[in-house]
């Protein structure tokens, strides 16, 4: 609980808009309490910038408790910073030392164009889900919930896959900027449950086609995504997605939906 004050140097990626060139800007962060969260540290820097009439650093945030998936940036080459299984909003400054130099960069990927500074456009993830990441059930037409038992082990596995918060750290950390972990987590979550069987074949191929159309890279099994994932979503779902895609290719008679961009 003991508090220390840190003086840090921030090298922050500044970019005015999607098509403008970016650059690093250096800002001191002084008197930073070790009890601050990383984003609170940036709040303090920003408030100071505003009072000096300078443009504050833009970064995404919302819930600040590690569940909404809004926040994310690369700190010294690591997505969400140095603490494992922790989003940047829950990362606290006690993980750093006085005098540290920190390089803050946005998620870099062609599928995630920069909006401004550290803010990127992750709408590609929404479009991947729109391509089939759901179970089609009309509101009000569901049958009694306990009619279809689901083995506890299966339900637990589905929940493991469903923990993804859609922050995009997997893409940011992947050497190929692949969205495989994100896509695989949703495909696995739904294909593990009996409710998800009817659309299973089409879901896998349509989501994968959309993932490719968004310009993300392919998986080359480095495992960086799993290491960067703040929710510990497992690589095994990518293996499962691959199985689902093969299954779909062998069994499905319908063609792939045209991916949208």
């Amino acid at each position: 609980m003991s508090e220390e004050l840190l003086n840090l140097t921030l090298h922050v990626w500044r970019q005015d808009g999607p098509s403008q060139p970016g650059r690093f800007e250096t800002h001191p962060a002084t008197g930073i309490s070790t009890h601050m969260s990383f984003l609170e540290m940036l709040d303090v820097v920003n408030e100071d910038l505003i009072e000096k009439g300078k443009s504050p650093i833009a970064f995404d945030y919302d819930c600040r408790e590690g569940i909404c998936g809004s926040c994310g940036m690369v700190v010294n080459g690591v997505a969400h910073g140095p603490q494992r299984l922790t989003t940047i909003c829950q990362l606290h400054m006690r993980q750093f030392n006085d005098g540290d130099e920190l390089w803050l960069e946005p998620w870099r990927a062609s599928g995630f164009p920069v909006v401004k500074d550290l803010v990127v456009d992750r709408s590609a993830f929404d479009r991947i889900v729109q391509a089939g990441g759901y179970i089609s059930i009309r509101t009000g037409s569901a049958t009694e919930a306990n009619e279809m038992p689901v083995a506890k082990a299966m339900a637990d596995q589905a929940m493991d896959a469903a923990e993804c918060i859609g922050c995009g750290a997997c893409v940011a950390a992947c050497p190929n900027a692949s969205a495989s972990l994100f896509t695989a987590a949703k495909i696995s979550h739904l294909s593990l449950l009996p409710q998800g069987q009817a659309e299973r074949l089409d879901r896998a191929r349509n989501m994968v086609a959309q993932m490719d159309a968004e310009g993300f890279g392919g998986c080359t099994n480095h495992g960086e995504c799993e290491a960067a994932c703040p929710k510990g979503v497992s690589l095994r779902w990518i293996a499962r997605m691959n199985r689902e895609v093969v299954r779909s290719a062998v069994k499905s008679d319908s063609g792939v939906k045209t991916a949208r961009r």
Binding site: V74, G77, W103, R108, S110, A177
Partner: peptide, 16 residues
Amino acid sequence: NNKARGSRYKKHQDMA
């Protein structure tokens, strides 16, 4: 994959 990555990080650290 090269195209997908686009720009590279100034700092990079491998985790896994």
